[in-house]
């Protein structure tokens, strides 16, 4: 069954790279949306929840870690799978964001195989 995806990153270039890499990984998404920061992402999620959210950690206005906490407060987004995408990969950061409700973590640079590995468990 096709799924919906939301890519959250303050860099438009990175959003395009992520989108391209997702396509290269062969994962089938019915609809893909983008958000340039945490606030924009929340607005989109309130309007309509998504199945999977790929989220940058370092963003202005609202960081990825704050966004995860906010998303988990939304009743309609309980089943949304959140995968963090970041160059930062300290154990403290990863443990913290996982405890707050993220479902996975991908470090940059990434490959289509990495997306395949991390996202495919949530595609069924």
């Amino acid at each position: 069954m096709a799924k919906t995806l939301l890519i959250v990153d303050d860099s438009a270039t990175m959003r395009k790279i992520v989108m391209r890499t997702v396509k290269m990984s062969g994962l089938d998404f019915d609809k893909t949306e983008e958000a340039g920061n945490g606030v924009e992402a929340l607005e989109k999620l309130v309007a309509g929840p998504v199945d999977i959210m790929l989220c940058d950690v370092n963003m202005p206005e609202m960081s990825g870690t704050e966004l995860v906490k906010e998303v988990r407060k939304l009743p309609d987004c309980e089943s949304t799978k959140i995968i963090m995408v970041s160059t930062e990969s300290s154990q403290e950061l990863i443990d913290g964001v996982m405890a707050d409700g993220a479902n996975g973590f991908i470090t940059k640079p990434f490959t289509p195989e990495k997306f395949q590995e991390k996202l495919s468990p949530f595609m069924n």
Binding site: R72, S89, D95, M98, F105
Partner: peptide
């Protein structure tokens, strides 16, 4: 890797 260990911290509620 550390990202794999971190999956052990996922909360049951999710």
């Amino acid at each position: 890797r550390p990202t794999d260990d971190a999956t052990l911290q996922i909360r049951i509620k999710w």
